[in-house]
């Protein structure tokens, strides 16, 4: 079975977010980029399923400029077999979705796995768009994924519960915990990753449909009002009379 795992290159979760002085761009200076944490679930699960099936391939795909290659190599070190980078700035979700859909179609992939959402842009939409572009089902967000032959059984999170969904290949799923324990690269993986194929292709299709015109940070808090522990009950009065939230 052929797995395609889409990974996004995002600022590390500890990043303090700042913007350029005109507020038009994210300030990348000094920021460490990582594989989007949700995408690690997709990658590890694909590798586990391939191992369980005793054959097949796991291809990682990123739409990004050359500076994403260290994280693509990391995905290869974790256990993917080969990689494709679409050489373009990921302008928006629709642009990215078209690139993924075209590669998925040309490569005849059976299972297309993604993360739940990118932690930078928080679109939660690329997986639905790819499913629609290919005319196949998308299950998002999935907490569990098992395969038996060409049929997958997934648990899909819904507000307040979960659904059990069955789909046949090909399909798209976006992954989140507790699907698996994301793997980290070992020494052997890092060594072999260097020689695994990484193909760079140019983008196709239409341009973006959305554009960021400005960024802003949330307003700073006014400072905390401390209430002594002995008179904790006072807090409740403040929440009612001053903050008016209860």
């Amino acid at each position: 079975m052929k797995f395609l795992v889409c990974i996004s290159n995002v600022p590390d979760t500890t990043t303090k977010i700042t913007f350029t002085p005109d507020n038009k761009e994210f300030n990348k200076a000094g920021v460490q980029f990582v594989i989007n944490p949700w995408d690690e679930y997709a990658l590890t699960r694909a590798i586990e399923l391939k191992e369980a099936q005793g054959g097949g391939t796991v291809t990682v795909l990123n739409v990004g400029e050359a500076d994403t290659e260290p994280n693509i190599r990391k995905a290869l070190a974790i256990g993917a077999d080969d990689a494709i980078r679409v050489n373009a700035f990921p302008k928006d979700a629709f642009f990215v979705a078209q690139q993924i859909a075209n590669i998925a179609k040309d490569g005849g992939y059976d299972v297309i796995l993604m993360g739940k959402e990118s932690i930078d842009y928080n679109g939660f939409q690329v997986h639905g768009m790819v499913g629609e572009l290919l005319g196949i089902p998308t299950v998002a967000p999935a907490m569990k994924l098992d395969m038996s032959g060409n049929t997958a059984t997934l648990e899909r999170e819904i507000e307040g519960g979960k659904e059990i969904v069955e789909v046949n290949t090909p399909f798209v799923a976006s992954c989140q915990q507790p699907m698996c324990e994301p793997r980290i690269p070992n020494m052997r993986g890092i060594m072999t990753a260097r020689t695994k194929p990484l193909k760079v292709v140019e983008p196709t299709g239409e341009g973006a449909r959305t554009e960021v015109s400005a960024y802003a940070l949330p307003p700073a808090k006014q400072g905390v009002k401390l209430i002594p522990a002995e008179s904790a009950g006072e807090l409740i009065k403040l929440l009612r009379n001053e903050a008016k939230v209860i």
Partner: peptide
């Protein structure tokens, strides 16, 4: 989880631009 799943498919089908969140 419903709105985002439907919205992303609709945006492709109706050729619409989409903003979430």
């Amino acid at each position: 989880n419903i709105g985002a799943a439907v919205g992303s498919r609709l945006s492709v089908r109706l050729q619409a631009s989409l903003a979430t969140n």
